[in-house]
């Protein structure tokens, strides 16, 4: 394929040099660290991130305008956080002129569509200062995560310390140190259906995208894609925000990222095609062809 990783200027393995960030980071603390740096340097006025809500492990999008607020968003919650829903509000109630936003590949697609076709996003397009994408194979509804953790892993959501998808398994770590792993075969049917037509694994449209795949534990793979992303990334590196390793020198490396990206795109492309003949001479909608 060759296009599965999108356009990028730089690919590198990295982790934050900030111990506080790493304490609760999912992997290398990339997103929190870049936003922290950009906030402190005045590159962004605030960032739309997902943080804790009134239910355990249910994310809620919010606008972080301080490092303290930002720190609440560390780590991954494997269910839907409609971050883009705040993109106009951030420029209104919060008065941000330069917005940072983090999101899944589909949310990066939403941001870019919003910039090129701002149907209901008045004065938003030129206020997106930094869009960070996270690698994503699929997402889950909150109720699916609840079912996986409570029914399959037999743990209370409240007592979960971390969740992780890696090495072909869904991992649930308890507060008391217990670890449950579920094979992805079990989790597949609980995935959000809308993810099955997604043709982007590594957030091709972000300024900077990052995820654990390809790098060793505790590190993240980073793609720097746009001029904006490149500018901020190189400044952050110069400021000592990150330790880095050449991606060619880490295991499992870029090859695995490519492999998984191709797997996702091939599988979902097939789903898109099957939708075309889903009924008897009746198709399901294909958003890549037409809004009709």
């Amino acid at each position: 394929m060759g296009t599965e990783l999108g356009n990028y200027k730089l690919c590198i393995s990295a982790r934050s040099t900030d111990k506080e960030i790493l304490k609760k980071a999912q992997d290398g603390g990339i997103v929190t660290q870049i936003f922290k740096y950009a906030l402190e340097e005045g590159i962004i006025d605030g960032a739309i991130v997902s943080g804790p809500s009134d239910e355990p492990w249910r994310p809620r999008p919010f606008v972080a305008t301080t490092v303290e607020e930002l720190m609440k968003s560390r780590g991954t919650r494997y269910n839907i956080s409609p971050n883009v829903s705040f993109i106009k509000e951030a420029t209104r109630s919060y008065g941000l002129d330069r917005i940072g936003i983090v999101g899944t590949p589909c949310q990066m697609q939403a941001v870019r569509k919003g910039q090129l076709y701002p149907v209901g996003l008045r004065d938003v397009p030129d206020k997106i200062a930094l869009a960070i994408g996270i690698f994503c194979m699929e997402n889950f509804p909150y109720q699916s995560i609840k079912q996986l953790v409570e029914d399959h892993a037999a743990m209370k959501l409240e007592s979960v310390k971390k969740m992780e998808i890696g090495k072909g398994k869904f991992w649930v770590y308890g507060e008391r140190g217990q670890v449950v792993q579920l094979p992805l075969k079990v989790t597949h049917k609980y995935e959000q259906p809308g993810c099955h037509v997604c043709l982007d694994y590594v957030a091709n449209l972000a300024d900077v995208s990052t995820g654990s795949v390809g790098s060793p534990d505790g590190w993240s793979t980073v793609f720097v894609r746009t001029k904006k992303g490149d500018d901020i990334w190189s400044k952050a590196i110069a400021a000592g925000c990150f330790e880095t390793k050449p991606i060619e020198q880490v295991k499992p490396g870029l090859e695995l990222v490519s492999k998984l990206a191709n797997e996702k795109i091939t599988k979902n492309q097939k789903t898109v095609e099957e939708r075309a003949k889903f009924g008897v001479n009746k198709a399901l909608r294909n958003p890549y062809i037409s809004p009709k």
Partner: peptide
């Protein structure tokens, strides 16, 4: 045309766009 069609992934664009 989105949720019923199995296409929604919960990005939040619609809420942002609503005037």
């Amino acid at each position: 045309d989105v949720v019923n069609q199995g296409l929604c992934m919960g990005c939040g664009s619609c809420a942002a766009a609503c005037p």
